[in-house]
Amino acid sequence: MTRDEEPSVAPADDPRPTPAVDRRRFVEDALKACAAGCPLILAVMRLPAAAAQRPAGEAAYDPAEHLYGMGIDIQKCIGCGRCVAACKAENDVPLDGYHFNTWVERYVIDEDGDVTVDSPNGGFDGFPPPAAESEIRRTFFVPKLCNHCANPPCVQVCPVGATFSTPDGVVLVDEQYCIGCRYCIQACPYGARWFHPTKHVAAKCTLCYHRLVKGLVPACVEVCPTGARIFGEVEQRPTPLARFMRMNDVQVLKPHLNTRPKVYYANLDGEVR
C-alpha cells in the first residue's frame, strides 16, 4: 500500500465512537487491552518468558548489558492514540491536554503542498476527520516521545545533574533531586519534557524503565494495535528493533542538532520536525 492510499481519517473500526469518550472508561479499556496483549507481544518479542515473570527480576537486571531504543513505523500508525492513553495511565501523567510523555501528531498535506499539523489532546482521543478545504494529497500520523538521545542536551544543561543517562541508554529525571529550574525543558529540541504541576519537577518519558528492569516492554509498545512501535536493543542483538533497522531506511528527528536520537523512524516525511 502506498502512502497515498492510506486512510485520511481514523479508521472505522476505532472502538471509540466520539472524541468525547469517557476517559476513565477508556483508560480501563486500554489497560485491559494492555493486559490481554501482553503475552502475545512478549512471544513476538522472543523475550525469555522467565525474564518476563521473574519476580525478583530487578536483582538480576544488569543495565550494562543493554542499550535500548525504539523504532516507529509511520506507515503503520493509525492515530488511534492508545499509546498516549496507556502511557498516561502507566506513568501517572496528568490527564489534561498539556502534559505528555508521548503524543501523536497528524500531518495533512493538501494538493497545494500546504501542511497542516494537529494533535488534539495529544491524540489521546484519536483524531476527528481533517477539516480539509482542498483535496488531500497525503496524510499520516507521527507518534512522538523523548528520543533518549545519545548526546542529550537536556542532560548537559541540568545544573545539579538531576537529569542523567543510564548505562542502558535511557534518559531519566531524579525527582528527589531536581530543583525545578526547567533549563532542561528549554534545551530539549523536541518538546519532550514537561513540568509536573504538583511535584514541581521536570518530567518526561522513562521508556517505562520500571517495566524494562522486569523484562517488560514500554506500555505504549505493548498496546499499539498495529505494531507501529518497535522496542528493543540498538546494537546488534536479535531483537525486533535490530530487524526493523535492518529492513528499513531509518531516520531520526532534527539530525542537524547532533543529539543522536535513539528513536528511529521508518517512512519519515521531510515535513516532520
Binding site: 541540568c158 545539579v160 531536581c178 526547567r182
Partner: peptide
C-alpha cells in the same frame, strides 16, 4: 525554582557541563 529548598545543590553537586 520548583524546589527552592534544594537550590544549594548547585553548590554541592554542580554538573560541570551545565
Amino acid at each position: 525554582l520548583g524546589h527552592p529548598e534544594r537550590s544549594y545543590e548547585i553548590f554541592l553537586t554542580p554538573n560541570r557541563k551545565s
